[in-house]
Protein backbone atom coordinates (compact mmCIF):
# COMPACT_ATOMS: atom_id res chain seq x y z
CA UNK A 1 0.00 0.00 0.00
CA UNK A 2 1.18 3.48 -0.80
CA UNK A 3 1.42 6.86 0.87
CA UNK A 4 -0.24 9.70 -1.03
CA UNK A 5 -0.12 13.49 -0.88
CA UNK A 6 -2.78 16.06 -1.65
CA UNK A 7 -2.44 19.84 -1.54
CA UNK A 8 -4.53 21.86 0.91
CA UNK A 9 -6.27 23.43 -2.09
CA UNK A 10 -7.37 20.07 -3.47
CA UNK A 11 -8.34 18.56 -0.11
CA UNK A 12 -11.80 20.12 0.14
CA UNK A 13 -12.78 18.83 -3.28
CA UNK A 14 -11.67 15.34 -2.20
CA UNK A 15 -13.85 15.42 0.93
CA UNK A 16 -16.85 16.76 -0.93
CA UNK A 17 -16.58 14.17 -3.71
CA UNK A 18 -16.11 11.33 -1.23
CA UNK A 19 -19.13 12.43 0.78
CA UNK A 20 -21.30 12.52 -2.34
CA UNK A 21 -20.41 8.89 -3.10
CA UNK A 22 -20.64 7.37 0.40
CA UNK A 23 -21.92 8.27 3.83
CA UNK A 24 -19.04 9.97 5.62
CA UNK A 25 -19.03 10.39 9.41
CA UNK A 26 -16.43 12.79 10.78
CA UNK A 27 -15.72 15.45 13.39
CA UNK A 28 -17.97 18.53 13.24
CA UNK A 29 -18.43 21.55 15.48
CA UNK A 30 -21.35 21.59 17.93
CA UNK A 31 -21.42 24.95 19.71
CA UNK A 32 -18.06 25.14 21.50
CA UNK A 33 -17.44 21.39 21.27
CA UNK A 34 -17.10 18.70 18.65
CA UNK A 35 -19.11 15.62 17.70
CA UNK A 36 -18.90 12.86 15.11
CA UNK A 37 -21.67 13.44 12.59
CA UNK A 38 -22.46 13.14 8.91
CA UNK A 39 -20.14 15.19 6.69
CA UNK A 40 -21.89 16.37 3.55
CA UNK A 41 -19.29 18.86 2.39
CA UNK A 42 -15.74 19.82 3.28
CA UNK A 43 -16.75 22.89 5.28
CA UNK A 44 -18.48 20.64 7.88
CA UNK A 45 -15.27 18.76 8.57
CA UNK A 46 -13.25 20.00 11.58
CA UNK A 47 -10.01 18.03 11.60
CA UNK A 48 -8.66 20.59 14.07
CA UNK A 49 -10.91 19.16 16.84
CA UNK A 50 -9.32 18.31 20.17
CA UNK A 51 -11.74 15.59 21.29
CA UNK A 52 -15.39 14.83 20.52
CA UNK A 53 -18.11 14.70 23.19
CA UNK A 54 -18.87 11.04 22.40
CA UNK A 55 -16.40 8.64 20.82
CA UNK A 56 -17.15 7.22 17.38
CA UNK A 57 -18.34 3.96 19.00
CA UNK A 58 -21.85 5.31 18.45
CA UNK A 59 -21.51 4.56 14.73
CA UNK A 60 -21.22 0.79 15.32
CA UNK A 61 -23.09 0.53 18.64
CA UNK A 62 -25.86 3.12 18.40
CA UNK A 63 -27.42 4.29 21.66
CA UNK A 64 -30.52 2.34 20.66
CA UNK A 65 -30.06 -0.52 18.20
CA UNK A 66 -32.89 -2.79 17.08
CA UNK A 67 -31.71 -6.41 17.22
CA UNK A 68 -34.95 -8.20 16.36
CA UNK A 69 -38.30 -7.09 15.00
CA UNK A 70 -41.38 -9.17 15.73
CA UNK A 71 -44.98 -9.44 14.67
CA UNK A 72 -46.91 -11.85 16.89
CA UNK A 73 -44.81 -15.02 16.95
CA UNK A 74 -42.93 -14.14 13.73
CA UNK A 75 -39.56 -12.47 14.09
CA UNK A 76 -36.50 -11.49 12.12
CA UNK A 77 -33.04 -10.07 12.71
CA UNK A 78 -32.20 -6.49 11.87
CA UNK A 79 -28.53 -6.61 10.96
CA UNK A 80 -27.26 -3.30 9.56
CA UNK A 81 -24.49 -3.92 7.05
CA UNK A 82 -24.42 -0.46 5.48
CA UNK A 83 -20.80 0.55 5.60
CA UNK A 84 -19.77 4.16 6.20
CA UNK A 85 -16.52 6.04 5.94
CA UNK A 86 -15.53 7.02 9.44
CA UNK A 87 -13.16 9.88 8.73
CA UNK A 88 -10.73 11.83 10.89
CA UNK A 89 -10.47 9.51 13.88
CA UNK A 90 -7.68 10.21 16.36
CA UNK A 91 -5.40 7.27 17.15
CA UNK A 92 -6.79 6.76 20.66
CA UNK A 93 -10.30 6.32 19.27
CA UNK A 94 -9.00 3.90 16.62
CA UNK A 95 -7.57 1.89 19.49
CA UNK A 96 -10.97 2.04 21.23
CA UNK A 97 -12.67 0.65 18.12
CA UNK A 98 -10.00 -2.03 17.80
CA UNK A 99 -10.76 -3.10 21.38
CA UNK A 100 -14.52 -3.31 20.85
CA UNK A 101 -13.88 -5.17 17.55
CA UNK A 102 -12.06 -7.85 19.48
CA UNK A 103 -14.66 -8.07 22.22
CA UNK A 104 -17.62 -8.33 19.85
CA UNK A 105 -15.72 -10.86 17.70
CA UNK A 106 -14.48 -13.23 20.43
CA UNK A 107 -16.52 -16.12 21.83
CA UNK A 108 -19.97 -15.52 20.39
CA UNK A 109 -19.48 -13.43 17.26
CA UNK A 110 -21.96 -10.52 17.23
CA UNK A 111 -23.02 -9.69 13.67
CA UNK A 112 -25.15 -6.83 14.95
CA UNK A 113 -21.90 -4.96 15.59
CA UNK A 114 -19.55 -6.61 13.12
CA UNK A 115 -21.63 -6.38 9.93
CA UNK A 116 -21.56 -2.59 9.84
CA UNK A 117 -18.05 -2.40 11.27
CA UNK A 118 -16.56 -4.72 8.66
CA UNK A 119 -18.36 -2.94 5.81
CA UNK A 120 -16.98 0.41 6.97
CA UNK A 121 -13.76 2.22 6.23
CA UNK A 122 -11.86 3.99 9.00
CA UNK A 123 -9.54 6.86 8.24
CA UNK A 124 -7.45 8.15 11.12
CA UNK A 125 -6.13 11.67 11.39
CA UNK A 126 -3.34 13.30 13.37
CA UNK A 127 -4.11 15.28 16.51
CA UNK A 128 -3.89 19.00 15.70
CA UNK A 129 -5.10 20.23 19.08
CA UNK A 130 -4.69 18.44 22.38
CA UNK A 131 -7.63 18.37 24.80
CA UNK A 132 -6.93 19.47 28.36
CA UNK A 133 -7.88 16.20 30.08
CA UNK A 134 -6.25 13.78 27.66
CA UNK A 135 -3.35 11.53 28.70
CA UNK A 136 -2.98 9.20 25.71
CA UNK A 137 0.71 10.05 25.59
CA UNK A 138 1.40 7.98 28.68
CA UNK A 139 -0.65 4.87 27.88
CA UNK A 140 0.77 1.73 26.32
CA UNK A 141 3.96 1.41 24.34
CA UNK A 142 4.99 2.17 20.81
CA UNK A 143 4.29 -1.42 19.69
CA UNK A 144 0.67 -1.11 20.81
CA UNK A 145 -0.15 1.62 18.30
CA UNK A 146 -3.56 1.85 16.67
CA UNK A 147 -4.82 -1.04 14.57
CA UNK A 148 -7.91 -1.77 12.58
CA UNK A 149 -8.01 1.39 10.49
CA UNK A 150 -7.71 1.50 6.71
CA UNK A 151 -5.82 4.74 6.18
CA UNK A 152 -4.26 7.53 8.23
CA UNK A 153 -4.26 11.20 7.31
CA UNK A 154 -1.65 13.67 8.53
CA UNK A 155 -1.92 17.41 8.00
CA UNK A 156 1.31 19.27 7.28
CA UNK A 157 2.39 22.51 5.67
CA UNK A 158 0.78 22.76 2.25
CA UNK A 159 -1.34 19.62 2.39
CA UNK A 160 -2.01 16.15 3.73
CA UNK A 161 -0.32 12.77 3.60
CA UNK A 162 -2.60 9.73 3.42
CA UNK A 163 -1.02 6.46 4.43
CA UNK A 164 -3.16 3.63 3.04
CA UNK A 165 -3.07 0.39 5.00
CA UNK A 166 -5.77 -1.68 3.30
CA UNK A 167 -7.50 -1.88 -0.06
CA UNK A 168 -10.49 -0.06 1.48
CA UNK A 169 -8.12 2.79 2.32
CA UNK A 170 -6.58 2.71 -1.15
CA UNK A 171 -10.06 2.92 -2.69
CA UNK A 172 -10.50 6.45 -1.31
CA UNK A 173 -7.71 7.87 -3.43
CA UNK A 174 -9.94 7.92 -6.50
CA UNK A 175 -12.05 10.71 -4.96
CA UNK A 176 -9.28 13.30 -5.07
CA UNK A 177 -6.24 14.63 -6.82
CA UNK A 178 -3.80 12.50 -4.82
CA UNK A 179 -0.23 11.96 -5.99
CA UNK A 180 2.44 9.64 -4.62
CA UNK A 181 3.90 11.17 -1.45
CA UNK A 182 7.63 11.81 -1.37
CA UNK A 183 9.90 10.16 1.21
CA UNK A 184 10.34 13.56 2.84
CA UNK A 185 6.57 14.03 3.15
CA UNK A 186 6.19 10.58 4.68
CA UNK A 187 8.91 11.19 7.24
CA UNK A 188 7.43 14.61 8.02
CA UNK A 189 4.09 12.88 8.75
CA UNK A 190 5.82 10.38 11.01
CA UNK A 191 7.53 13.19 12.89
CA UNK A 192 4.26 15.09 13.38
CA UNK A 193 2.58 12.00 14.85
CA UNK A 194 5.56 11.21 17.05
CA UNK A 195 5.98 14.76 18.35
CA UNK A 196 2.37 15.09 19.46
CA UNK A 197 2.80 12.18 21.91
CA UNK A 198 4.56 14.52 24.37
CA UNK A 199 1.89 17.20 24.25
CA UNK A 200 -0.60 15.92 26.88
CA UNK A 201 -0.46 18.03 30.03
CA UNK A 202 -1.62 15.02 32.08
CA UNK A 203 0.43 11.87 32.51
CA UNK A 204 0.17 8.53 34.24
CA UNK A 205 3.06 8.14 36.63
CA UNK A 206 3.78 4.47 35.88
CA UNK A 207 3.83 1.97 33.02
CA UNK A 208 0.69 0.02 32.07
CA UNK A 209 2.06 -3.23 33.48
CA UNK A 210 3.04 -1.63 36.80
CA UNK A 211 -0.40 -0.05 36.99
CA UNK A 212 -2.17 -3.32 36.12
CA UNK A 213 -0.40 -5.17 38.91
CA UNK A 214 -0.84 -2.53 41.60
CA UNK A 215 -4.48 -1.81 40.77
CA UNK A 216 -5.35 -5.54 40.80
CA UNK A 217 -3.59 -5.98 44.14
CA UNK A 218 -5.57 -3.05 45.57
CA UNK A 219 -8.87 -4.86 45.06
CA UNK A 220 -9.44 -5.61 48.74
CA UNK A 221 -8.56 -2.10 49.94
CA UNK A 222 -12.17 -1.20 50.77
CA UNK A 223 -11.25 2.13 52.32
CA UNK A 224 -9.43 3.25 49.18
CA UNK A 225 -12.36 2.47 46.90
CA UNK A 226 -15.03 3.93 49.12
CA UNK A 227 -12.98 7.12 49.47
CA UNK A 228 -12.43 7.36 45.71
CA UNK A 229 -16.15 6.87 45.08
CA UNK A 230 -17.42 9.00 47.95
CA UNK A 231 -18.78 11.75 45.68
CA UNK A 232 -20.00 9.42 42.92
CA UNK A 233 -23.57 10.14 41.74
CA UNK A 234 -23.80 6.69 40.06
CA UNK A 235 -24.85 8.54 36.92
CA UNK A 236 -22.83 6.48 34.46
CA UNK A 237 -21.51 9.49 32.48
CA UNK A 238 -18.00 8.02 32.63
CA UNK A 239 -19.30 4.87 30.91
CA UNK A 240 -21.35 6.77 28.35
CA UNK A 241 -18.42 8.77 27.00
CA UNK A 242 -15.85 5.94 27.16
CA UNK A 243 -14.63 4.59 23.80
CA UNK A 244 -14.24 1.09 25.25
CA UNK A 245 -17.45 0.88 27.30
CA UNK A 246 -20.01 -1.12 25.36
CA UNK A 247 -22.22 -2.73 28.03
CA UNK A 248 -25.87 -2.76 27.09
CA UNK A 249 -29.34 -3.58 28.27
CA UNK A 250 -31.88 -5.37 26.07
CA UNK A 251 -35.52 -4.30 26.19
CA UNK A 252 -38.60 -5.08 24.15
CA UNK A 253 -40.87 -2.34 22.85
CA UNK A 254 -44.36 -2.79 21.47
CA UNK A 255 -45.71 -0.87 18.54
CA UNK A 256 -49.05 0.84 19.23
CA UNK A 257 -50.96 -2.24 17.98
CA UNK A 258 -49.50 -4.31 20.89
CA UNK A 259 -48.83 -7.15 18.45
CA UNK A 260 -45.65 -6.13 16.67
CA UNK A 261 -42.59 -4.41 18.02
CA UNK A 262 -38.86 -4.67 18.44
CA UNK A 263 -36.16 -5.97 20.74
CA UNK A 264 -33.61 -3.19 21.22
CA UNK A 265 -30.29 -2.84 22.93
CA UNK A 266 -29.48 0.37 24.75
CA UNK A 267 -26.23 1.64 26.25
CA UNK A 268 -25.97 0.69 29.89
CA UNK A 269 -23.53 1.68 32.65
CA UNK A 270 -21.88 -0.45 35.31
CA UNK A 271 -21.73 2.59 37.61
CA UNK A 272 -25.51 2.71 37.91
CA UNK A 273 -27.06 1.16 40.98
CA UNK A 274 -29.18 -1.52 39.27
CA UNK A 275 -26.56 -2.79 36.84
CA UNK A 276 -25.74 -6.05 38.67
CA UNK A 277 -29.01 -6.43 40.56
CA UNK A 278 -31.20 -9.53 40.24
CA UNK A 279 -34.68 -10.08 41.59
CA UNK A 280 -35.08 -13.34 43.43
CA UNK A 281 -38.86 -13.21 43.73
CA UNK A 282 -41.17 -12.71 46.66
CA UNK A 283 -39.80 -9.19 47.10
CA UNK A 284 -36.18 -10.19 47.67
CA UNK A 285 -33.29 -9.14 45.49
CA UNK A 286 -29.54 -9.44 45.34
CA UNK A 287 -27.25 -6.65 44.17
CA UNK A 288 -23.86 -8.11 43.31
CA UNK A 289 -22.25 -4.64 43.25
CA UNK A 290 -24.25 -2.81 45.84
CA UNK A 291 -21.99 0.05 46.90
CA UNK A 292 -20.61 2.97 44.89
CA UNK A 293 -17.11 1.87 45.85
CA UNK A 294 -17.67 -1.59 44.37
CA UNK A 295 -19.00 -0.16 41.12
CA UNK A 296 -16.26 2.46 40.87
CA UNK A 297 -13.67 -0.26 41.49
CA UNK A 298 -15.15 -2.46 38.77
CA UNK A 299 -14.74 0.30 36.19
CA UNK A 300 -11.12 0.96 37.11
CA UNK A 301 -10.31 -2.78 37.20
CA UNK A 302 -11.90 -3.25 33.81
CA UNK A 303 -9.96 -0.35 32.29
CA UNK A 304 -6.60 -0.90 33.96
CA UNK A 305 -6.15 -4.63 34.54
CA UNK A 306 -8.82 -7.19 33.63
CA UNK A 307 -8.48 -7.02 29.85
CA UNK A 308 -4.78 -6.14 29.52
CA UNK A 309 -3.61 -9.67 28.78
CA UNK A 310 -6.26 -10.25 26.15
CA UNK A 311 -5.84 -6.84 24.48
CA UNK A 312 -2.10 -6.33 24.87
CA UNK A 313 -2.94 -2.82 26.16
CA UNK A 314 -5.14 -1.44 28.94
CA UNK A 315 -8.81 -0.94 28.02
CA UNK A 316 -8.33 2.79 28.62
CA UNK A 317 -7.11 4.81 25.66
CA UNK A 318 -6.39 8.05 27.52
CA UNK A 319 -8.94 10.27 25.76
CA UNK A 320 -9.88 12.01 29.03
CA UNK A 321 -13.57 12.12 28.14
CA UNK A 322 -14.63 10.54 31.45
CA UNK A 323 -12.60 13.13 33.36
CA UNK A 324 -14.46 15.94 31.61
CA UNK A 325 -17.90 14.29 31.78
CA UNK A 326 -17.87 13.40 35.47
CA UNK A 327 -20.19 15.73 37.40
CA UNK A 328 -18.23 15.31 40.62
CA UNK A 329 -14.88 15.26 38.77
CA UNK A 330 -13.79 12.03 40.44
CA UNK A 331 -13.58 9.78 37.36
CA UNK A 332 -10.26 11.07 35.97
CA UNK A 333 -8.12 7.92 35.51
CA UNK A 334 -4.93 9.97 35.91
CA UNK A 335 -5.93 11.14 39.39
CA UNK A 336 -7.38 7.78 40.40
CA UNK A 337 -4.54 5.63 39.14
CA UNK A 338 -1.73 7.91 40.24
CA UNK A 339 -3.33 7.97 43.69
CA UNK A 340 -3.57 4.15 43.80
CA UNK A 341 0.10 3.93 42.78
CA UNK A 342 1.04 6.02 45.82
CA UNK A 343 -0.90 3.92 48.35
Amino acid sequence: MNPYFITANDFDAFVTKMSKDKKVIGPKAKKQKFVFGEIKSADHLRLDYDVTILPPKKVFTPTCQTLVTFDGDKFEGNVDNDGVILFGVHFYDIRGIDITDLLFRENNRDVNYLAKREASTIVGSNIQNVSKRSFWGSIGTSDSGPKGHDAFLTKMDGGYVLECLTQKGEDLVKFGNWSKASAAQVSEAEKINKDVMDKCSQKLSHSSSEIAEKVRNSFDNQELWSNLAEDCFSCGSCNTVCPTCYCFDVQDKWNLNQVSGMRNRYWDSCLTEDFAKVSLGAGSEENFRETRGERFRHRIMRKATYLNEKLGTPACVGCGRCSAACTADIADPVNVINKIMEV
Binding site: N108, D110, A276, K277, M301
Partner: peptide, 19 residues
Amino acid sequence: LERRMKCGVGKCGHCQIND
Protein backbone atom coordinates in the same frame (compact mmCIF):
# COMPACT_ATOMS: atom_id res chain seq x y z
CA LEU B 1 -23.90 -19.18 40.32
CA GLU B 2 -26.72 -16.72 39.90
CA ARG B 3 -26.03 -13.40 38.17
CA ARG B 4 -27.87 -10.98 35.89
CA MET B 5 -27.11 -12.89 32.68
CA LYS B 6 -28.89 -10.46 30.44
CA CYS B 7 -27.50 -11.36 27.00
CA GLY B 8 -26.18 -14.84 27.79
CA VAL B 9 -23.39 -14.55 25.22
CA GLY B 10 -20.68 -12.65 27.09
CA LYS B 11 -21.34 -9.21 25.62
CA CYS B 12 -23.67 -7.08 27.73
CA GLY B 13 -21.46 -6.99 30.84
CA HIS B 14 -24.13 -7.44 33.52
CA CYS B 15 -23.03 -10.82 34.87
CA GLN B 16 -19.32 -10.07 35.25
CA ILE B 17 -17.57 -11.57 38.26
CA ASN B 18 -14.25 -9.72 38.25
CA ASP B 19 -12.94 -10.50 34.74
